[in-house]
């Protein structure tokens, strides 16, 4: 039986979350007793120095890494003890990822990259539905005319827009973005932030790690991580 979180209107809830690494016998605490709630329709910005623990926090919320202590609730479900297969399914359905290095499959076109999460998801059985959805998403990020282009034929900004379209493929409730504009010019950065903001207005919970000064203008809430704790 999965444990339920009692709070309403909370999409992600972190309870007494800690993460430690061991270097030999020495314990290094990366996150220390974090308690946080994330709501849908909000744009969260996580800031902090390099090594402060913000990327680890993002990994744990993305179910890529596991906490040493504490619990994570997503949609009121405790996801701490899910099997690898269930976690994979959960990530596919509920979480969209946007990375600093885009991580597009270089052997697939923009269109094909967007379809990958839908192909994994068994709910999208009909090719027509996948195609329609992928084209809609590429249109949303302004790349409808570049669907047949391979990543090497796109600019960095365009690659990141494809990555955003891919993150939205299965209509997840959470979008985790790790330095999504770290490699982009000002214009592309503005476009990406605006799109993320638009997505949050559409009900998505956007959690973004960024060092950009302009990012704060788009965020509903700013969380500063320092030495493994939220200030």
């Amino acid at each position: 039986m999965e444990e339920k979180n009692t709070k309403n209107n909370t999409l992600i809830s972190l309870k007494n979350l800690s993460k430690s690494y061991y270097k030999g016998s020495k314990e290094i605490k990366v996150l220390n007793n974090i308690n946080l709630d994330f709501e849908p329709g909000k744009f969260y910005l996580i800031v902090g120095h390099s090594g402060s623990g913000k990327s680890t926090l993002l990994k744990i919320m993305g179910l890529i890494d596991k906490p040493t202590n504490g619990e994570i609730f997503i949609n009121n479900n405790n996801v701490n003890n899910l099997s690898d297969r269930k976690l994979a399914k959960f990530r596919n359905n509920e979480i969209g990822f946007v990375f600093q290095d885009y991580f597009l499959d270089k052997l697939l076109t923009a269109y094909e990259n967007v379809t990958v999460p839908m192909i994994i998801n068994k709910e999208y059985k009909k090719r027509k539905i996948v195609k329609k959805r992928a084209l809609e998403l590429l249109d949303f990020v302004g790349l409808k005319d570049r669907i047949k282009h391979f990543p090497k034929e796109l600019s960095g900004g365009e690659e990141q827009r494809v990555a955003i379209a891919r993150a939205l493929a299965n209509d997840p409730s959470i979008i985790l973005a790790d330095e999504p504009t770290g490699n982009l010019d000002v214009e592309s950065e503005k476009f990406i932030f605006e799109k993320l903001k638009e997505m949050s207005k559409n009900g998505k919970c956007i959690i973004m790690v960024s060092h950009s000064k302009d990012a704060i203008n788009y965020a509903d809430k700013v969380l500063e991580v320092k030495d493994g704790v939220i200030l």
Binding site: R85, A88, K89, F97, F103, D105, I120, R166
Partner: peptide
């Protein structure tokens, strides 16, 4: 390798 990792993050199961 990164694409394989990415595919796992995107939801590919080990069997797939």
């Amino acid at each position: 390798k990164k694409i394989i990792k990415l595919n796992k993050i995107l939801g590919y199961s080990n069997i797939r």
